[in-house]
Design a binder for these strands. Structure first.
Lengths: 194, 194
DNA sequence: GTAAGAAAATGACCATGGTCAATATTGGAG
DNA sequence: CTCCAATATTGACCATGGTCATTTTCTTAC
């Protein structure tokens, strides 16, 4: 039998990804067009879809990469001493997923996968987010009546809520941090806020 | 000047909505096609788009209606005596927004509006959800160190999280209630769970 | 080096949401 | 009753993501 994967394949895929990155850098995620990517990469349209299941799969990968970098950053931080430390650490993450409405919608859409085999990069980052945060806050001055994993999942919920509200016109234009802090105070330090 | 809105307009719009409802009832939300709706309603395609900004606008309206009915139900309930009462009351809501992955994604996508004038039916239900829940739980046996509005927003966050996890293969197939209860316990009764 | 078969690339084609200039209908003013 | 302007409807057309039978390229066996 022949080699499972040809060098050519990797080269073409790299061309597609590079082209997409350049275009996104130029016009943003929502304005990226498959036709534009294949033109820039110098391949036919069908080639795109033999490398990626659909347009979303490419975006999933590119956005997942970015989120992973942000989680890498959080992992290097010392144990947080306050809710404010946590919020500050999460701001870059929140800024990225809210850089375009389109990106936030896509992130939510890919946050889970129906089948184990189909778990994509963004879904991975959701899993990883919980792990990273749980591990990061577990020695901090926060409530101890709940597993760090549960606290971390809750933090994620509130982050998503804060970003969602940020897109909503009804709510005054408050900075992102202000939308998150009061909830995390109540969530992580219920005794103090009593 | 002539009448601002002609009877004909209302009739056509009703035909479109009825047709859409029938089709959705038949094949579900995600499989509904605009072409099918206009064929069933007996109008031209362009007519659809002079009544609704886009396909999403019609779905927004139909789904918003359903959610409103569910909130009506919750409004009639007596003050909850426990987290379990709350979770039970929320199950129909969770079941509906998770009836199709497509529906859940659409609900999240419409949960906020960029401009005040553009707030649609689903975004309204998000606002209303917080009001209804805040009012409903405010006399219940729950923590009193936070405004009911904040508690209600938190409940909503956890509901969304529970439904999202329900779509995710990584997490065992646990009933929806089981995904929500532990979080609401920690959120609404922090002292008890210490 | 060459032939055979596997893998990759191609591009014409399709599905479907959405647009818009042209046409038809309506309701009121005279 | 008739005409006019406002309003509603029409359907050919476009944009864009996605498919698939065909063709090209690569790798290995000999």
């Amino acid at each position: 039998m022949t080699t499972a994967i040809q060098p050519r394949t990797l080269k073409t895929r790299a061309k597609l990804i590079d082209a997409a990155r350049a275009i996104i850098n130029d016009v943003g995620y929502s304005a990226m067009r498959v036709e534009q990517v294949v033109a820039e990469a110098g391949v036919a349209k069908g080639t795109f879809f033999s490398h990626f299941k659909d347009k979303d799969a490419l975006l999933d990968r590119l956005i997942g990469e970015e989120i992973d970098k942000l989680l890498d950053q959080i992992e290097t931080l010392p144990t947080p001493k306050s809710v404010d430390d946590i919020v500050s650490a999460l701001v870059p993450y929140m800024n990225f997923i809210s850089c375009e409405r389109f990106v936030f919608d896509l992130v939510l859409r890919h946050s889970g996968a129906a089948k184990i085999e189909e778990i994509g990069p963004i879904a991975m980052t959701f899993e990883r987010f919980a792990d990273v945060i749980a591990n990061w806050i577990k020695d901090g001055p926060f409530r101890t009546d709940a597993m760090p994993e549960m606290l971390a999942n809750g933090v994620h919920s509130f982050v998503i809520q804060a970003v969602a509200l940020n897109f909503c016109a009804i709510h005054q234009s408050e900075p992102l941090k202000g939308r998150l802090t009061p909830y995390l105070d109540l969530w992580l330090n219920p005794a103090q806020s009593a």
